[in-house]
C-alpha cells in the first residue's frame, strides 16, 4: 500500500516538475522583447557590446597622451602564449637618475586568446579589455599593434 501511494505521488511530482520546466520556456517564448539575438550588420550603428565583453587588449590614454604603463613587463611574463612583448628604454630623469620606461608595448592580437590574464596582472591597471570586435584585416601584420601611442608618456605619480 505504501509503495502504491509513493507511486501515485511520484506521478504527480513528475508531472509537476515537467510543468515547472514548461513554465520557464513559456516565459521565454512569450517575452519576445527579451530575445538576445542581435541582427548584426543591420544594427551595426546601435549595437553596444556588454561590459564584460573582451574584444582586444587596449591601453587607455588621457587627453594629454599619458598612460599608466611603467614598462615593468609583468604582463609579458603572464601572457600564456607570448602575445605581448615589452621593449623598454632607459632615460635620465631631470634629477639625473636613470630610469627604465616603456618604449613599445607590442601586442599581437593574432595570437591573443583574450584570456584577460595580462589585464589582471598589470600592477598599475595600464591595460584593459576593449569592446571592439571587428578585427578582420587583409594583412596579418596589421594585427601586431603598439599599444602605447607615439609620443605618449607615463602619467605623473604612478607608483613604480
Amino acid at each position: 500500500m505504501k509503495s502504491f501511494i509513493e507511486y501515485i505521488v511520484s506521478v504527480f511530482k513528475g508531472l509537476w516538475t515537467l510543468l515547472v520546466g514548461m513554465k520557464v520556456t513559456a516565459k521565454y517564448f512569450f517575452t519576445p522583447w527579451n530575445h538576445v539575438t542581435q541582427q548584426y550588420p543591420e544594427n551595426r550603428d546601435t549595437l553596444v557590446m556588454f561590459e564584460r565583453f573582451r574584444g582586444e587588449v587596449i591601453m587607455p590614454h588621457t587627453e594629454n597622451n599619458e598612460h599608466l604603463c611603467t614598462g615593468c613587463g609583468i604582463c609579458e611574463i603572464n601572457c600564456p602564449n607570448g602575445s605581448i612583448e615589452i621593449i623598454s628604454k632607459s632615460i635620465l630623469t631631470p634629477e639625473g637618475k636613470k630610469k627604465r620606461i616603456i618604449d613599445q608595448h607590442i601586442y599581437h592580437l593574432g595570437m591573443c586568446t583574450l584570456c584577460n590574464l595580462c589585464v589582471k596582472a598589470c600592477p598599475t591597471g595600464a591595460i584593459v579589455m576593449g569592446q571592439k570586435f571587428e578585427h578582420a584585416v587583409w594583412d596579418r601584420a596589421l594585427l601586431t599593434k603598439v599599444l602605447n601611442q607615439p609620443g605618449s608618456k607615463i602619467a605623473e605619480g604612478v607608483k613604480e
Binding site: 521565454y28 517564448f29 519576445p32 527579451n34 530575445h35 539575438t37 541582427q39
Partner: peptide
C-alpha cells in the same frame, strides 16, 4: 522559429 523563441533567439531571419 518556435525553437528559437523558446531559446530566446530569433531563428532564420
Amino acid at each position: 522559429k518556435v525553437c528559437a523563441a523558446f531559446q530566446q533567439r530569433l531563428g532564420p531571419m
